[in-house]
Design a protein around this nucleic acid. Structure first.
Length: 573
DNA sequence: GCCGTTTTCGGCCCGACTGTTTTCAGTCG
């Protein structure tokens, strides 16, 4: 775990502990804010501390800066060590149980000496638990159900899984009489790499009835709440889905509100308050008078702001940029002119060169690069030099059959442990596109891994670095590497770094995209497809790039073929 | 505990749903 993550998690635990101790709510929020801002830093926190710039991080004042310094130098935080003596860590973790908040947990701790999950379950089975103010039979049942979900440790769901599921549920909701404009909101609309639940918004004037039918849909396993405007269910695949029903006049305000993020909305509301306006999910109001609500654009506009794209509503400077008229003009899916990272049945893909090329053409692309693995990737059936040249022959015959799209001969070449590449330069020079990537030797120490990749980037035939950190979301941590050095080397030698669109990778991730762009490093968004249907995943990569504030000009494969060709050959265009 | 074209002190976003409430507190997003 990186030190940023460690500090961020400790601040969160402090916030939760203080919550149970019923400390000042704004102090608690300060800790949560600081935790979030630290987890989203695009620069190493140690470097920031060395420059004595910690208080320049939003939400970090003198006190928290001192705490960060203490943790960096000593590896622990005395304040938190003391807090743990007062409130057991295991107890604080129980806040993740649905329906169990700080107030009730505090009572259970003080009056029933509950300090962990086992003791909580015992207490719930006891007779006198009902004596606690606010505890009834229904509440006990709710908590038991919450514990079951907690034990299944409800994982966050990958974007690539949640998105098609949300689309399916939306189709189901659209079949309910009287609904229109059904759309997903929340972190899904912001295209976060993982989502905790699925938020859906629909327009209807018979809210109660719509919610009732929603809770009876075939995909529902469990109903958590069902009211006049809001319903909440657990779907059969274990994902929580919340539906909100609003009238047409409130659609924009509700969409803005339910899209979040929470931090973004808090700041937006503060702007409203300063202008004497009130903003909630029903609209923007001056006194009793409605000023906006029908469209999201209007809500922002009446606050004196341009429409801010959902993907960057994370309170990472987008509101300040909007005020100054400096919002980025984010790259769009339509800007993408081709896919530069695609596998076929020559290595570990499932389809032929022709199938992949035809699908790419159907998507309207100008070019596609066929980039199978190199020999070291044995499991992936990497191509020997002989097979590489055989493949080239097939590719050339496909070029004659499939017209109207440029089919580029490429390879995803392994970076070996010493930083050399898996084919000799004499072979690399014959390829149109050379991708360098790490598939073996993940456990290398940071400095060595950084040197290894930097060396590969100095090879004159390499065009870009694929999945630069090697992470698999929820499965494998990124390898240790100094990304700033990688980005600087890439820029110096005219190479790009990839945003890999595979839903498990999304690598680079959003904040690292921003980091690369801030350094002026070019980016390629590609799919790493192993089947024609995977080419559609480009939208996930584009969304990730958008979350990293990427503009069309930052993305190499928004170039037309001629421009791309110049870039591949080392000419600036 | 942070922060300042209201402020170095006094603010700090807003509403729905639920259960145990008899007028509301707790939880959630």
């Amino acid at each position: 775990m990186s030190i940023d993550t460690e500090i961020s998690e400790i601040f969160l635990k402090i916030a939760n502990s203080l919550d149970i101790l019923e400390d000042n709510p704004f102090k608690i929020r300060a800790y949560r804010n600081a935790a979030r801002n630290i987890s989203e830093l695009t620069e190493d926190i140690k470097t920031i501390a060395e420059r004595d710039d910690l208080t320049k991080i939003p939400g970090i004042g003198k006190d928290l800066a001192d705490k960060v310094k203490e943790y960096i130098t000593s590896g622990k935080l005395n304040y938190y060590e003391d807090l743990k003596k007062e409130i057991p860590e295991e107890l604080v973790d129980l806040l993740a149980i649905q329906g169990l908040g700080p107030k009730m947990l505090s009572k259970l701790f003080k009056e029933y000496h509950v300090t962990n999950l086992e003791e909580l379950e015992t207490a719930l089975n006891g007779e006198d638990i009902l004596k606690i103010h606010g505890m009834g039979k229904k509440k006990i049942e709710d908590l038991r159900r919450g514990i079951v979900i907690f034990k299944e440790s409800k994982q966050r769901v990958n974007l690539g899984i949640a998105l098609p599921l949300a689309e399916e549920i939306i189709r189901e909701i659209n079949r309910i009489h009287g609904t229109e404009g059904t759309i997903y909101a929340g972190s899904l609309r912001r295209m976060k790499e993982t989502v905790g639940d699925i938020d859906i918004l629909t327009i209807a004037d018979n809210g109660k009835q719509v919610i009732e039918e929603f809770t009876k849909m075939s995909s529902v396993k469990d109903v958590l709440a069902s009211g006049d405007t809001k319903g909440s269910i657990i779907s059969r695949n274990g994902i929580q889905v919340d539906l909100r029903v609003v009238g047409p006049g409130s659609y924009g305000a509700a969409l803005q509100y339910f899209t979040g993020s929470q931090a973004h909305n808090v700041k937006i509301r503060t702007i409203g308050v300063k202008k004497g306006l009130k903003i909630n999910e029903y609209g923007l109001f001056r006194g009793d008078k409605t000023i906006a609500g029908e469209t999201e654009k209007d809500v922002y506009y009446k606050l004196g702001l341009p429409l801010i794209p959902p993907e960057i509503r994370e309170d990472r400077g987008e509101i300040e940029a909007a005020i100054e008229g400096k919002l980025p003009n984010l790259v769009e899916s339509n800007d993408i002119k081709g896919d530069l990272h695609v596998h076929t049945n020559w290595s570990d893909g499932t389809s032929s060169i022709e199938d992949m090329a035809r699908k790419a053409k159907k998507l309207g692309y100008e070019y596609i690069a066929i980039t199978d693995h190199s020999p070291s990737s044995r499991i992936a059936n990497g191509l020997s030099i002989e097979r590489l040249y055989e493949k080239r022959e097939e590719l050339e015959s496909v070029r004659k059959k499939v017209r109207g799209i440029q089919i580029l001969m490429g390879s995803e070449v392994d970076i070996l442990s010493d930083g050399t590449l898996d084919y000799p330069d004499s072979v690399l020079k014959d390829l149109d596109v050379v991708i360098a990537s790490v598939h073996i030797g993940f456990k290398m120490e940071r400095a060595k891994m950084t040197r290894r990749i930097m060396k590969a980037l100095t090879n004159p035939f390499v065009n870009f670095l694929a999945h630069p950190t090697g992470r698999l979301i929820g499965e494998r941590d990124p390898y240790e590497v100094d990304l700033d050095d990688i980005f600087e080397t890439a820029k110096k030698y005219g190479k790009a770094v990839e945003v890999n669109s595979h839903y498990l990778r999304l690598d680079l991730k959003d904040i690292n995209v921003k980091r690369a762009i801030d350094k002026g490093t070019d980016i390629v968004i590609s799919t790493d497809s192993h089947h024609p249907d995977h080419l559609h995943q480009m939208k996930l990569g584009v969304a990730t790039a958008r979350r990293g504030w990427a503009e069309k000009k930052n993305i190499i494969n928004t170039k037309r073929f001629k421009g791309l060709s110049n870039w591949l050959n080392g000419f600036s265009s």
